[in-house]
Computed example of a mutant assay.
Amino acid sequence: MIYISQDGTGDFRTITEALASLPKDSSAQQTFYIRKGIYRERVSVTVPYVAFIGEDAENTVISGSLHASMKMEDGSKRGTFRTYTCLVDTHDFTAKNITFENCAGKGTDAGQALALYADGDRLLFENCRFLGGQDTLFTGPLPPKEVEPGGFTGPKQFAPRINGRHFYKGCYLEGDIDFIFGSATAYFENCTFFSKYTGREISSYVTAASTPKDQEYGYVMKDCRFESNCPPENAYLGRPWREYAKTVLINCYMGSHICKEGWHDWGKESAHTSAFYGEYKSFGPGAAMEKRPDWVRRLTESDLPLYEKEAVLGGTDNWRP
Score class of each variant (00 low, 15 high):
I4C: 10
G8I: 05
R13F: 01
I15D: 06
I15Y: 05
T16K: 13
E17G: 14
E17D: 15
L19V: 11
D25H: 15
F32V: 08
Y33K: 15
R35S: 12
K36F: 05
I38A: 14
Y39R: 09
R40S: 13
E41Y: 06
S44H: 12
V50D: 14
G54W: 01
A57S: 15
N59M: 11
I62P: 02
S63L: 04
G64A: 13
G64N: 06
G64F: 02
L66M: 08
L66K: 10
H67A: 07
A68Q: 14
S69M: 08
R78Y: 04
G79R: 06
G79Y: 02
F81Y: 15
R82F: 03
T85D: 08
C86R: 00
V88E: 00
T90F: 05
A95E: 09
T99D: 08
E101N: 11
N102Y: 02
A104W: 04
K106F: 06
G107P: 06
T108L: 07
A110E: 01
G111I: 02
L114Q: 13
A115V: 01
Y117F: 15
A118I: 01
F125I: 04
F125Y: 11
N127F: 02
C128T: 04
L137K: 03
G140K: 01
G140S: 09
L142T: 01
K145N: 12
P149S: 04
P149C: 14
P149K: 10
G151Y: 04
F152G: 00
T153I: 11
K156R: 15
A159H: 09
P160W: 03
N163D: 11
G164F: 00
F167C: 09
C171W: 02
C171I: 00
Y172F: 14
E174G: 06
D176N: 12
I177M: 09
F181Q: 03
S183T: 01
S183M: 07
A184Q: 07
N190P: 00
C191M: 06
C191D: 07
K196H: 04
K196A: 06
Y197D: 08
Y197W: 11
E201G: 12
E201D: 14
I202H: 00
S203W: 05
S204G: 09
S204E: 05
A208I: 01
A209C: 06
D214E: 15
E216D: 13
M221V: 12
K222P: 00
D223A: 08
R225E: 12
F226S: 03
F226D: 06
E243C: 03
T247W: 07
T247R: 02
V248W: 10
C252Y: 02
M254F: 05
M254S: 09
G255N: 14
H257I: 03
H257A: 10
I258S: 00
K260G: 10
K260V: 15
E261A: 15
E261S: 15
H264R: 03
K268E: 11
S270M: 12
H272P: 03
H272N: 09
T273K: 13
F276C: 04
Y280L: 13
K281I: 10
F283A: 05
P285M: 06
M289F: 09
E290V: 00
R292Y: 08
R292A: 14
W295M: 13
V296P: 00
R297W: 13
P305W: 01
E308L: 01
K309F: 01
A311V: 02
L313V: 09
L313E: 06
G314F: 02
R320I: 04
P321T: 09
